[in-house]
């Protein structure tokens, strides 16, 4: 029972946290969207195309934040062999991949009218594309290795190797010249976004983060269930079956 002691506590805590996460996500995203689409003014240079910022920037922040979270959880899982940390990292990956894809796609839709191109191979855009492939590789590793313990270890190493990409993404716009402009909000000298545009942006960022917490808890809950199902079947002796008993389970295969 020792192995499930922590997951049981996790289940209780997450059941208590989930409604709050949903409430914050709903309120922040709702007011952020109203603020971004209706209340924020058009930009003096970019006109209404600047509103793409309200989904592009939070997506890009989350793309990096989720990776940092995934790598930290991977390190904890790797060093202290904590199954819940492995599960957290695994559950976060598809969300990070989704945010990264959203950042790339919305950036492309913003770049075409403003810069005059859908895509360039500058340091910022290329390093974010690499981040997207890191997420895909991480997800693929989990799916390729049957044993959860071995899969967790292999995936954790990949996640940690990819950490080197995070400072490259963040500082690419300062270290090298790029088409992408430098940071507007997370800079030492303070934001260069007028407050009328900054507050909807921050609300959206809060909403994205609360959404991540909520869906992460949901995914971890599902993953814990799959592991319990697997354990139940193994103790029932189905593992001696040549088809190891659960290969026919479509729901298990479909898990992202």
């Amino acid at each position: 029972m020792h192995r499930f002691a922590n997951p049981a506590r996790f289940a209780r805590l997450s059941a208590r946290a989930l409604p709050w996460a949903w409430a914050v996500a709903g309120l922040a995203l709702g007011s952020g969207l109203v603020g971004g689409l209706l209340l924020a003014p058009a930009d003096y240079q970019q006109g209404d195309s600047v509103r793409i910022m309200f989904v592009h920037v939070p997506s890009a922040w989350m793309a990096m934040f989720v990776y940092a979270f995934m790598a930290a959880a991977s390190a904890v899982g790797l060093i202290w062999r904590h199954a819940l940390a492995d599960i957290a990292a695994k559950a976060a990956a598809p969300l990070g991949a989704g945010f990264t894809f959203a950042a790339l796609a919305t950036g492309s839709l913003w770049g075409q009218p403003m810069w005059g191109t859908w895509w360039v191979w500058d340091a910022r855009l290329t390093s974010v594309l690499v981040l997207f492939f890191l997420y895909l590789g991480y997800i693929a590793l989990w799916q390729a290795i049957e044993d959860p313990g071995k899969a967790a270890r292999a995936a954790a190493i990949l996640a940690l190797v990819g950490v080197v990409n995070l400072p490259i993404i963040k500082f690419s716009v300062d270290w090298w010249n790029t088409l992408h402009q430098p940071a507007s909000v997370l800079r030492l000298a303070g934001p260069t976004i007028h407050s009328s545009m900054l507050w909807p942006l921050l609300l959206m960022a809060v909403g994205f983060k609360a959404y991540f917490v909520a869906v992460l808890l949901l995914r971890m809950h599902a993953e814990l269930n799959w592991r319990r199902i697997r354990a139940l079947r193994l103790t029932a002796g189905e593992s001696t079956d040549s088809s190891h008993g659960f290969a026919t389970l479509p729901a298990e295969r479909a898990s992202l």
């Binding site: 969207l33 689409l37 209404d48 195309s49 509103r51 793409i52 989904v55 592009h56 997506s59 598809p94 969300l95 989704g98 945010f99 894809f101 959203a102 796609a105 919305t106 839709l109 913003w110 075409q112 009218p113 994205f208 959404y211 869906v215 949901l218 995914r219 809950h221 599902a222 269930n225 729901a251 479909a254 898990s255 992202l256």
Partner: peptide, 26 residues
């Protein structure tokens, strides 16, 4: 450019939410 951006970002989030909900229920 603006509307597809919002559709893509929020659509991905909705899709991941529904997929995760289904997974948890299953």
């Amino acid at each position: 450019y603006v509307w597809p951006s919002f559709a893509i970002a929020l659509g991905i989030m909705l899709w991941l939410l529904l997929a995760s909900l289904g997974e948890a229920r299953r």
